Amino acid sequence: MTQDQAATAAGSATSPAEAGTTATEPMVTVTDLRRSFGTGERTVHALRGISFTVGRGELTALKGRSGSGKTTLLNLVGGLDSPTGGSIAIDGTELGGLNEDGRLALRRERIGFVFQSFGLIPMLTAAENVGVPMRLRKVDSAEREERTHALLALVGLADHANQRPGELSGGQQQRVAIARALANEPGLIIADEPTGQLDSETGRSIMELLRAVVRSEGVTVLVATHDPTLMGLADRVIELRDGRVIEEQAEQAA
């Protein structure tokens, strides 16, 4: 995980979806998205004309082997990178029309991030890690403490508020990371292999938590995973291969 990703995870601030929107309106719209690296004969085409939408309040899983384009796609949707071609709209905002400051504002105002390596600040407690995005927004301390407590309870860690990351298991650390991503009420959470460092049982519990968050908080989640056993927990699965969408299917959540 890069320092930029860690800073993004800690500083992602978000705003609720506009009043009056419906579940049928897309949170994410991707159209003919392309991303290439390098030039000439050494050009690598990571994404080759991808198009899809993600509805509000939907848990969508990106499936595919390493090198299929999942992380590249998430970085583009999250505004961490810019495409070679095509377009992305988040909650009605076209990313292509934004400069770097605009993309930073988008990440802080509408998107929460969860990374495979957790990205917690080691010297801070679980509660303090969750509170970082709210501190950056200068949220009143009483409100910040109340929301931190509520979020730790939501992820099942109310009794671990004063423990530091090194005193928590991998699954508990990822739960803290999810609570932090929710700190400023995001419309969209982007999760890149959030179970990649966890055993299968713990990984399933994290995916179940993400599904519960979608249901209880009305958040849209776009998650990349290579684990086929977790696909049944998603509302929809989009499979990538060699930078292309090869299959989309609705899943019956277990």
Score class of each variant (00 low, 15 high):
Thr2Ala: 01
Gln5His: 12
Gln5Tyr: 13
Gly11Leu: 12
Thr14Gln: 14
Glu18Ile: 07
Gly20Phe: 05
Glu25Phe: 02
Glu25Ala: 14
Met27Cys: 14
Ser36Tyr: 14
Thr39Val: 04
Glu41Pro: 01
Thr43Gly: 13
Gly49Gln: 08
Lys63Asp: 06
Gly64Ser: 12
Ser66Phe: 04
Gly79Arg: 13
Gly92Glu: 09
Gly97Trp: 00
Glu100Lys: 09
Gly102Glu: 12
Leu104Trp: 03
Ala105Asp: 13
Arg108Cys: 05
Arg110Lys: 14
Ile111His: 07
Phe115Trp: 05
Gln116Asn: 07
Gly119Arg: 12
Met123His: 10
Leu124Thr: 04
Thr125Gln: 00
Ala126His: 05
Ala126Met: 01
Glu128Arg: 02
Gly131Asn: 10
Val132Ile: 12
Pro133Gln: 04
Arg144Asp: 01
Glu145His: 13
His149Ala: 06
Val155Asn: 02
Leu157Met: 05
Ala158Asp: 06
Asn162Leu: 03
Asn162Tyr: 00
Ile178Pro: 00
Ile178Ala: 05
Ala179Asp: 08
Ala179Val: 03
Ala179Gly: 10
Ala181Phe: 01
Leu182Gln: 11
Leu188Arg: 14
Pro194Asn: 10
Pro194Leu: 05
Thr195Glu: 15
Thr202His: 14
Gly203Phe: 04
Ser205Trp: 08
Gly218Met: 03
Asp227Cys: 03
Leu230Ile: 05
Arg241Gln: 11
Gly243Val: 09
Val245Asn: 15
Val245Gln: 11
Ile246Lys: 07
Gln252Ala: 13
Ala253Gln: 10
